[in-house]
Nucleic acid binder design. Structure first.
Lengths: 197, 197, 197, 197
DNA sequence: CATGAATGAGAATTCATTCAT
DNA sequence: CATGAATGAATTCTCATTCAT
């Protein structure tokens, strides 16, 4: 009876369009009109599904993080149990994201990071995402580190790598050649391994 | 056209206000009205000294970079001739910038990085700044590396550290406790040293 | 076209919800979405029962007037045949409406009065309602006045009391303590009696 | 030097236009575009002088009240010292306002009364205005009443007349013939005098 | 140079109403 | 009848920029 709800799908379509537009023109440039056009829907429909631009951004952040996380989880699954390999797999997965494969996501993520500066709500979820990344790294580092490595040191290493990944993203967003994929991956591996000693 | 005003000082005052406001509210939030109020001048006056908001941003980027560069140059000067020490001094200087000492500059810099995504003119000078940083690091790495280290490897190391610094800035801008100064500095040193082996 | 629905009850439910929402947030604030939510029905259903928001308002005006009229008619019935008592019963009944008993109706009525300013269709039925009230008062005044009181004078008295009641409603809608029920009733009685002399 | 400020005058012009448009089309109908057109200025200029529509409304309320107050104060000044005459002068002045002389103000005032239902900020200043009117009447009643009249009774009388005036405004706003000026004035006088006995 | 009023091109948002299911 | 997604016109508000004084 009645019209079947396609809300979830529509929300995803809209968020996907938003991410693409934002990657191309920044958050301010991602006007509702531009997003609507990209999605091929009237502007009002966006407001039928989202409370506003901020709500759309917040929802997109979740989507972006999920996409990033899924990506490296897939890789981790393919990796064996060797702790060091697992740690490197994590790093590889993230740094490789700067590749064309998902450039839009990475660039959009950089925009989120900048909005986090100005908008408390965005900052909250952005920082949470960073912490989740660091926590994941902490476990990987803990498993890969020498037996008596202090918890503090593990935490620091995890934080540093988490931050470095963010830097790779930023650089990749503005200059693909700066840290060409192959190079960046290799070097990030070296940095990570360096922290294990 | 921005006049070759006798009041270069005014331009600096305005740019300084712009940076502060941008650090607090982002680029979009740094309205001309807000900047003018912060500087304690009428809004129209900004347009006597700058061609527009973009011009103001471009000028501020130069100012920010100069400020950052001056800071670590001072440190480098205090450092001896040992190549490794010099390299670490460079890293220390940058990472320490996330401290309260110049938080506003760092946060504003992050905003510049996001604007670079959307605005070609900004991207150009932002990328140039990143390259200058990498080039500086390249020389430092070259001097500190083992004799036969390949040029490519030195370049990659420099790029990775340059990017990591950007990541530290981003994280520091939204979460001062994430990479508390002391920790971040120490870990960045370890990462850098790791790349030398 | 509003269907001659078998669910006249639905229309009433919707109108009741509309009145409540309008009393709380004004006519503009009584959005179809808010009314639907209040009524616990989907938004589209309102349009099955009413031609539009204006139609809903018009129907609600009738409902409000009926509610008000019923109230004082009940009182009049309980009152004997003494003309003065009947006149005072009418006044009491209206002024007492400002009490919590039916505050929402009174407040909604005030909103109707304001919409009558801008919307001709509303003005028409609102003015008609005011005239019916005045006409009712005219008869009561005629019966209660001294034998040779002129028709003009009776009409004027009726109009003044009718208007004063509207004023009591307005005041009650925004400030329940202004004309606390007991006081207002007593004073309106005095005013009415004063007009009889 | 520089451009002389005409802010105060502009604000008044805008508020005057707003009142006129609101009297014609209600608060919701008084769009910024309509007000701007009426004032013969671009829409943006309104926002240069007022924080928003609500701010414009608030400012207009002050203006309306001042206009009303000035009007009867002028009359009071022309009236001698006889307390009853002064009281009646006050009543006359208000009721006569429904005349064409200042119909727009009265109608706009009715719109304010309706907005007071929905908007707390408006309610606050509207209620304050009503209280000032009542307080003024209280003093006049106190002076005109029989020596031992209780304070409570004086207050009640003042409140009732204050409310009745609001009702006259409402009625005048939608139906000029309902309480034609002459009649309304005469009857309100009788009502007021009735309260003195 | 200085001032701040003026301008107008968008931007987000609201919401009554329509319509496919 | 019922449902709620879809539509798009209208509205408020923002803000860089211009310009008269």
């Amino acid at each position: 009876m009645a019209r079947p709800s396609n809300t979830a799908q529509r929300r995803d379509e809209i968020a996907a369009s938003f991410i693409e537009v934002m990657a191309a023109t920044g958050y301010a440039g991602a006007t509702m009109a531009a997003v609507a056009e990209r999605a091929g829907i009237p502007q009002g429909l966006i407001h039928h599904h989202f409370d506003g631009k901020l709500d759309l951004l917040m929802h997109s952040v979740g989507r972006l993080e999920r996409r990033l996380v899924e990506r490296y989880e897939t890789r981790l699954r393919r990796t064996g149990t060797d702790p060091v390999r697992r740690l490197l797999a994590f790093v590889d997965a993230h740094v490789a994201l700067g590749a064309d494969a998902d450039r839009a996501s990475v660039t959009a993520w950089v925009c989120v990071g900048a909005e986090a500066v100005a908008e408390p709500a965005v900052r909250r979820i952005y920082v949470q995402a960073l912490r989740r990344r660091r926590d994941e790294l902490r476990e990987l580092f803990a498993a890969a580190s020498a037996p008596r490595t202090s918890r503090a040191r593990v935490l620091e290493s995890a934080g540093a790598v988490a931050a470095a990944i963010e830097g790779i993203f930023q650089v990749a967003a503005v200059d693909p050649t700066f840290a060409a994929r192959g190079h960046a991956v290799r070097t990030m591996r070296r940095m990570t391994l360096g922290l294990l000693r």
